[in-house]
Design a protein around this nucleic acid. Structure first.
Ligand SMILES: [Zn+2]
Ligand SMILES: [Zn+2]
Length: 811
DNA sequence: AGCACGCCGACT
DNA sequence: GTCGGCGTGCTC
């Protein structure tokens, strides 16, 4: 008997595995996925290790192996261990991000009737009805019972099982193997086909004769799958056994356009770029020289992408492979295109927008080592790339790199840095506005820091270095308080409206940026001021052109209203998205100008982000109003004015990263102006013109924001000076929710008081920023200090609490 | 997470 | 007395 340690799909504590026994013939190996019994059900599990002696007496055995191929490499298993402890999730949860797309599933239990003649009089009416139903049907999904009888069935079903009327059973679904191969069956001797058919008929193999005849008459090869639909496996096997058929295995070529890619030429490097590339080269594949993590702080247009491409090239030349992470695929088509052009037919792309089949093909292709580079969002870090040597994280500061919704709530930067500590890979992070934490770490020597302070000549082969200061756009701050005092109630300051007029009259283009948070559409009553809210969540509903009234938290759709539910007034006002309002204002200011919008509605209408960007780049409209920052890499030489409608949105949120976030946004927006031959102008409208984040953003002064922000963080003990853990409790009952939060808070404080060195402080409990989601009330507690995980491990967390370690925001 | 078990008020 | 609603604890 062999024993294995399995990470099962159940929320048992972090880093816990359960022991199962296996027989020799199952041939269970590490990294495989298996079905194992757990209590009264069957769950998926990943084999973590093989052990000789079990620690327990009561051990059950592995039911079956789901895929003979080990799905998780040693690297993955080690990383999962670390993630499980660091993010306080189950081992299986941390494994779940590494599985082939769509692999995680649960199995349906069926109820089967047992002995017929037992008297049923001891049963309740519901139980009798359910039993009757199961006996008639023969075998019924347990889910079906629960659906038709509701949760009243719960007791009855367990009663039926315990008293031996029915039993649970499972049918294990067929193994999903690599989908990239198509097996066709073709007659081996087509010219002697007629003879063969006659022979088969003569020996009584009529089905086999029919199949062979079918195949001979077909114009094209039949796939095994097609044949299986009409004939049983034994018929097909019979013909194969008689050597009348041959199987042909074909690689399925991905149907995505395999356009001819014109390889592009590497650009000449500046000395600054060259030194970064040289440094990375020394780290690639090296074991000893730490740190193997690198931060490139390079202003917009300083040529970070070219550095990445050179690093990729060096990596591939060494026979190693790379993962290139981008914040959002849809917003960075140019980056993808450049990588593709430099490394034709070597790049895999994987993201959730692709079809499941496509994703699976890419996953298995990556695993077989068919690609040298994987490009993707945060989840791409976990793609099964063999011989990994390099991970690049572009726009390192972006929040999309942190998973916030479900466990594992990981930050891909943290995981990549940990990976570089575990194995000999090199991590290159780059940003014009590095995360305060990353930059601080780099200054402390945790990462090797490089600065690229100059813009390189955009798209020019001379590649001349011009000091960044000279080509930086002129930035003006418009004080909206003064505008109000001067009687200007328009959303445009005088500076911005004259700027727009001037820009347009010269035939140039302008971009107006609006923070998405302030741009949501609302539905309001003109008489009583009522705003429509979701009945399950404490948020206002938004109105989408395509999907109508919608709750942003729970995705619930609503019918549009014509009468106010509060005062029955019919005067209902549909305030469009903020971008629409801005568009209207432009129309009244400059009626003849063509304006295009870039927001959630217009993305749907005009066919995607890329379509909007390209249309504007071609000059089809003169002003672009958007909630998106135009992606990097898109050349917009004609844009001479960029306006930020209101910089303050989000600035006063009760979140310690609010200032940093505002700065990043302003920097990114201003970075769009003045990249062509026309000197650019940026106008930032604000009610807080003296705010440090607004000022630093306006001046694109990273040093200023870093120094101010790091001092705040030091004073308040926020990251990077201590860790944070965000605990949220949610419950349908408001009082229960509050009570539990207060109880747990007491427990936490008691435990901390008892500690010798009380290095952890408890903040809260307090109602969460969004007080109710999907009908559940929410209270939260923030823990601040060092080694909080250690504290959490020492106490049992009651169910209903969700844990976010190193949260990106504590709203 | 699911599932069982056990306790308690409501109703035959 | 049973029924079923809900809190609690365990799963190799
Ligand atoms: Zn009203
Ligand atoms: Zn909602």
């Amino acid at each position: 008997m062999n024993y294995v340690e399995v990470a099962v799909d159940a929320p048992i504590g972090p880093n816990k595995t359960l022991t199962y026994s296996t027989s020799e013939k199952l041939r269970v190996v590490t990294g495989q996925m298996v079905w194992v019994p757990l209590g009264q059900r069957l769950v998926q599990g990943i084999v973590f290790s093989l052990v000789d002696e079990p620690k327990l007496r009561s051990i059950r055995s592995v039911v079956s192996v789901i895929d003979p191929a080990p799905l998780i490499s040693m690297r993955g298993l080690c990383l999962a261990r670390w993630m499980s402890r660091h993010y306080q999730c189950s081992l299986f949860e941390s494994i779940s991000v590494m599985l082939p797309p769509g692999f995680r599933s649960n199995i349906d239990a069926y109820l089967e009737p047992l002995v017929e003649n037992t008297p049923t009089s001891s049963l309740t009416k519901t139980a009798q009805a359910i039993l009757q139903y199961i006996r008639v049907q023969g075998s019924v999904k347990e889910k079906t019972i629960k659906k038709t009888w509701g949760y009243v069935a719960d007791n009855s079903v367990s009663r039926l099982i315990s008293e031996g009327f029915v039993r649970r059973n499972w049918t294990i679904p067929h193994t999903r193997s690599s989908p990239s191969y198509r097996v066709s069956i073709i007659p081996k001797f087509p010219d002697k086909g007629v003879k063969a058919v006659a022979y088969l008929s003569s020996i009584g193999a009529f089905k086999q004769a029919a199949l062979l005849k079918d195949l001979l008459l077909r114009p094209r090869d039949a796939t095994l799958e097609e044949a299986r639909r009409k004939y049983s496996t034994s018929v097909i096997d019979g013909l194969l056994g008689k050597d009348l058929l041959i199987q042909k295995w074909e690689r399925v070529v991905s149907t995505s356009k395999s356009a001819v890619i014109l390889p592009d030429q590497p650009l000449e490097l500046t000395s600054e770029q060259q030194s970064v590339v040289d440094h990375i080269r020394t780290k690639l594949g090296s074991y000893d020289k730490r740190p193997r993590t690198i931060l490139i702080h390079g202003i917009t247009g300083s040529g970070k992408t070219e550095v990445y491409l050179r690093a990729l090239d060096d990596c591939i030349r060494l026979g190693l492979r790379a993962i290139f992470l981008v914040p959002e695929i849809a917003l960075t088509p140019q980056t993808m295109e450049r990588i593709n052009m430099r490394f034709p037919n070597q790049v895999a792309l994987i993201h959730s927008g692709m079809s499941m089949k496509n994703q699976l093909d890419q996953w298995w292709g990556i695993r077989r080592g068919e690609f040298n580079v994987v490009v993707g969002p945060r989840s791409a870090l976990f793609s099964p790339m063999p011989k990994l040597g390099l991970v690049i994280i572009d726009e390192e500061h972006e929040w999309t790199y942190k998973e916030q919704e479900r466990q594992p709530r990981y930050h891909v930067r943290e995981v990549a840095v940990e990976l570089a500590r575990m194995v000999n890979i090199c991590v290159v992070m780059g940003s014009a506005t590095p995360d305060i934490v990353t930059y601080f770490e780099a200054l402390k020597g945790k990462h090797k820091l490089f600065n690229l302070p100059y813009r390189v000549g955009v798209r020019s082969n001379t590649n001349s270095t011009v000091p960044g200061i000279l080509s930086l756009p002129k930035v003006d701050i418009a004080d909206m308080r003064q505008e109000l005092m001067a009687g200007n109630r328009s959303i445009f300051s005088r500076a911005l409206s004259t700027g727009l007029k001037k820009c347009i009259s010269k035939g140039e283009q302008a971009i107006l940026f609006l923070n998405r948070r302030g741009s949501a559409s609302v539905v309001q009553c003109r008489d009583c001021g009522m705003v429509l809210r979701c009945k399950r969540c404490a948020v206002t509903l938004t109105y989408h052109k395509l999907r109508g009234l919608l709750c942003h938290q729970c995705n619930l759709g609503y019918k549009s209203v014509t009468v106010c539910p509060e005062c029955e007034s019919p005067r209902i006002k549909y305030l469009g998205q903020g971008t629409q309002k801005v568009e209207e204002e432009i129309k009244s200011l400059l009626p003849w100008v063509s304006v295009s919008r870039w927001d959630s509605d217009s993305v749907v209408e005009s066919g995607g982000h890329a379509a909007i960007m390209e249309s504007f780049a071609r000059g089809e409209s003169q002003i672009l109003v958007g909630t998106q920052v135009v992606s990097k890499g898109l050349h917009l030489p004609n844009v001479s004015l960029v306006g930020v409608i209101l910089a303050d949105i989000g600035l006063h949120l009760p979140d310690f990263r609010a200032g940093e976030r505002t700065f990043q946004l302003l920097c990114q927006v201003s970075g769009r102006a003045g990249r062509g031959d026309i000197p650019g102008n940026v106008i930032i409208q604000t009610y807080n013109p003296k705010n440090y984040a607004v000022l630093a953003g306006a001046n694109q002064d990273y040093r200023a924001i870093f120094e101010t922000e790091i001092e705040y963080r030091r004073q308040q003990g926020n990251p990077p000076f201590s860790g944070l853990v965000h605990l949220t409790y949610s419950h349908f009952n408001e009082d229960v929710c509050k009570e539990e939060a207060q109880n747990f808070n007491k427990e936490l404080r008691k435990l901390i008081e008892g500690d010798a060195n009380r290095r952890i402080s408890v903040i809260g409990p307090a109602p969460a920023h969004v007080y109710r989601i999907r009908g559940k009330y929410r209270w939260h507690i923030i823990l601040r200090g060092d080694d909080i995980v250690n504290l959490i491990e020492r106490m049992k967390i009651p169910r209903g609490w969700s844990i976010d370690v190193d949260p990106v925001s504590v709203l």
